[in-house]
Amino acid sequence: MAITVASAQLPVGESLRIQKNRIGPLDRTVPHDKRICIVTGTHGDELEGQYVAWRLAEKLNKNPWDLHGVVDIYPALNPLGINSVYRGMPQSDLDLNRIFPGNGNGPVPEYLASEMVKDMQGATVCIDIHASNIFLRELPQIRISETMADSLVPMARFMNMPLIWIHASATVLESTLAHSLNSVGTPTLVVEMGVGMRITREYGEQLIEGIFSLMSHLGIWGRKTPPTTPPIISSDWQVSFINADHSGIFIAEANHTARVEEGEPLGFIADPLSGKVLEKIASPVSGLLFTLREYPVVYEGSLLARILHGTP
């Protein structure tokens, strides 16, 4: 059932609507006080979650008797961004994921953000699905702020994602949906996977399995699910960042998600005008290449790769 969570009139003959699909249990004799929120489309250029939203709804529609709780699917928190191939909110150029928890008396983006938080608050768990942007391809992963690690990692283990990246807290990230919900006691896991403007079905299916596994663990899904792959947890390892020192065209040589050895070529930065190689990039460590540059045009400082390494 499609429900409008928040809306605001646009200037000419249209309203901006934030919608969710609420799927509840058919068996009313089963207690269904538990609720999971599946949220995506915060950035209009991140489409990996579109497949997951559709696939999850399709599966639940086919097996409604196994549902023992409420599933709220929010496929597009930023519908105008998705409609215009735009990462931020098109009218204001604001990044929606930097204005939470919003403000009911603020301008449209802040008002919508506050309504979203109100609607999701109180859920048993919330899964906030992001793709990477258009520049980087990411191994499917759960990202958790270190301050929330103790409470969220046990749930994240069910998500069938190969990596749980526990990152340092940053003040700017206090304006994200996940931080806002976690701050009010609604456990929220952030998924990053794939690349912007594309759908990687394999990753989507992997995440769907994880969502059913977590729902089964929480008692929202009545069937047993197959065991998920144990994740690597980044706090046991180290992450190396590799940034470009030259502007040019990045040509990747290593394969994304491969294990690379120290000194192994990751790629090079070319200058098509002169035919020269401006920079050769070799892996500084041996480890898992979990992030790799996707968009070839780079500037000094552009992130090219991230490698998980060390000994647990």
Binding site: R87, G88, D93, N133, F135, V172, F241, N243, V297, Y299, E300, G301, S302, L303
Partner: peptide, 26 residues
């Protein structure tokens, strides 16, 4: 363009900056 034209990041959200980081952080 209002923000950094290559990736639409805002230089005025990057201070104090990071010399080894991404372009607008640098």
């Amino acid at each position: 363009k209002r923000f950094w034209a290559a990736d639409n990041t805002d230089i005025n959200r990057m201070f104090p900056g990071y010399a080894q980081g991404e372009t607008t952080q640098r």
